[in-house]
């Protein structure tokens, strides 16, 4: 089981990027490029007033890209491994876990880049990162895995889910305080933002990176949503997995 996860994760890196350094470079370049474009569009042109806006963008975009990459890849996870699924009986959810794990590892490896930017802006990292990062990363893994498992499973039966997923990711991005801060939202909508399951998690990452603080209510809410996603994904998978080989 451990070996299966390991080999599938290696395979994932190999198949997606051909070369593991290239994969890492993309996982850094992609959020940085978005940070730059949002900084120009929203920070300079639209004059969004968030203190240290470039840093704020970076603190939110790196974790967001992990989530968005995993969910964006989800519809094709089982399809891309059709030859394996048709042949052998093995726990197919490991394919999803290895995809999410792979994106997660890339995120963790890019934390030094975030650190570099903090230092350049004369911010100091905090000891609270040592507990904060594992706690938030675990919640995010559960959430991304649960959602990706549900999407990957359902997509075998309804093949156009990848388009819907792409739209959903865009919606999710703009409904989450990543390009803007939650304090900019008009009061009547402030609480509503937390109906979005990923908002508490993303806000927690920003707070952790920028001020070294962990808000326990937000963390609790993040875990609540993460468990719900995990439950949903597992339920869908259990219901459908026995028929994967005949529809893949």
């Amino acid at each position: 089981m451990k070996d299966l996860l390991l080999v599938l994760t290696q395979k994932e890196i190999k198949v997606r990027y051909k070369n593991s350094w290239l994969g890492y470079a993309w996982s850094v370049a992609n959020p940085l490029a978005f940070a730059l474009i949002y900084f120009v569009a929203f920070g300079i042109f639209m004059r969004v007033e968030v203190p240290n806006y470039p840093l704020f963008l970076i603190a939110g975009l790196f974790p967001w890209h992990w989530l968005a990459n995993s969910i964006g890849a989800a519809p094709n996870i089982f399809l891309a491994n059709a030859t394996l699924i048709k042949k052998v009986r093995f726990p197919r959810n490991v394919l999803v876990a290895s995809t999410v794990l792979n994106d997660g590892l890339h995120f963790l490896l890019s934390i030094p880049v975030i650190l570099g930017f903090l230092i350049a802006f004369r911010f100091a990292p905090s000891w609270s990162w040592l507990i904060g990062i594992p706690l938030l990363a675990l919640a995010q893994f559960m959430m991304a895995y649960g959602l990706a498992l549900a999407i990957a499973s359902v997509n075998l039966f309804f093949r156009d889910l990848d388009r819907l997923t792409a739209i959903a990711i865009t919606f999710l991005f703009f409904l989450t305080p990543i390009a803007y801060s939650s304090s900019m939202i008009p009061t009547p909508y402030q609480a509503m933002i937390y109906l979005n399951p990923i908002a508490p998690l993303m806000v927690s990452w920003q707070q952790l990176f920028l001020s070294g603080s962990l808000s326990w209510p937000l963390l609790l809410l993040s875990y609540g949503y993460a468990l719900a996603c995990l439950g949903l994904g597992s339920l869908v998978y259990l219901k459908l997995s026995s028929r994967f080989a005949e529809v893949v």
Binding site: D3, V7, K11, V15, T83, L84, K86, V88, F90
Partner: peptide
């Protein structure tokens, strides 16, 4: 040994596929 190519990933090399295939069938690395 079902249909041709089942259990292999087309983008991996022969050697990598041997490992993948063996592990999928329940062996350790």
């Amino acid at each position: 040994l079902l249909e041709l190519g089942a259990g292999f990933h087309p983008d991996l090399t022969g050697r990598e596929n041997i490992v993948l295939n063996g592990i999928l069938q329940g062996l350790t690395r």
